[in-house]
Simulated scan of single mutants.
Amino acid sequence: MVGLVVVSHSHTAAEGIVEIAAEMAGETNIEPVGGDGDGGIGTVPDDIESTLATADDGDGVVVLVDLGSAVMNAEVAIEMSDVEAVIADAPVLEGAVNAAVAATSPDATLSSVREQAEAARDIDKL
């Protein structure tokens, strides 16, 4: 099953997004990661890398990120990791929910889950 990692500058925000997405995720492994390691705001590549390993069960991981430097640090973490992972260019909350639903499909692939996460860019709120 494709896993998910939510990267936020705030660990609390990442946990909240995971909590919401998990309502739709069935057995999908969704892991939060964020903060600077000292309780502050930021992201740390080493923390992201270890979270990728936790989320992966062999089918890869789709990563959702909140802001610019989270993208950069997630890219570094993916390069350091042995896990097959891709970053979705998606709004983090809506993308996480879409990805969680997509990952429950028995036919889910890294590509199909990423595509569904990215489809969240087109969701109208009003």
Rank of each mutant, 00 (worst) to 15 (best):
V83I: 14
G26I: 01
E75M: 05
A85V: 08
I17T: 07
S50W: 03
E49I: 04
A88T: 01
V86Q: 11
P32T: 01
V76M: 15
L67M: 15
V63L: 12
G37N: 09
L67Y: 02
D46G: 06
V6L: 06
E79A: 11
V33D: 03
M72T: 15
S10E: 13
T12L: 05
A74I: 02
I41E: 10
N73I: 09
I17F: 01
A85E: 06
I30C: 01
E84A: 15
N73H: 14
G40L: 01
G26K: 04
I48L: 14
D82V: 10
E84G: 09
I20D: 00
D66A: 01
S81W: 00
S69Q: 05
T43I: 04
G42E: 03
D82M: 05
V71F: 07
S81C: 02
T28R: 02
G58L: 12
I20M: 15
A88L: 05
I78H: 02
A55G: 09
V62G: 01
V33S: 13
A21S: 08
G42F: 07
L67C: 10
E23Y: 02
D59T: 00
A13T: 14
D46W: 11
I17K: 11
G26Y: 01
E15C: 10
I17V: 14
D47R: 06
G39C: 09
H9S: 11
N73S: 09
I78Q: 00
G35K: 09
I41L: 12
P32S: 10
V62D: 05
I48H: 03
A85T: 04
A21V: 12
I87D: 05
I78E: 03
D66S: 04
G39S: 09
N29A: 09
A25Q: 04
T43W: 07
L64T: 14
I87K: 03
S81L: 00
G39P: 05
E75N: 08
V86C: 00
H11M: 11
D36P: 08
P45L: 09
A25M: 03
T12Q: 08
T43M: 10
E75G: 00
E27V: 05
V7K: 13
I30M: 01
S8G: 06
A85D: 00
L52S: 12
T43L: 07
I41Q: 07
V6N: 05
D56R: 11
G68A: 13
A88C: 06
V33A: 12
V63G: 14
A13Q: 12
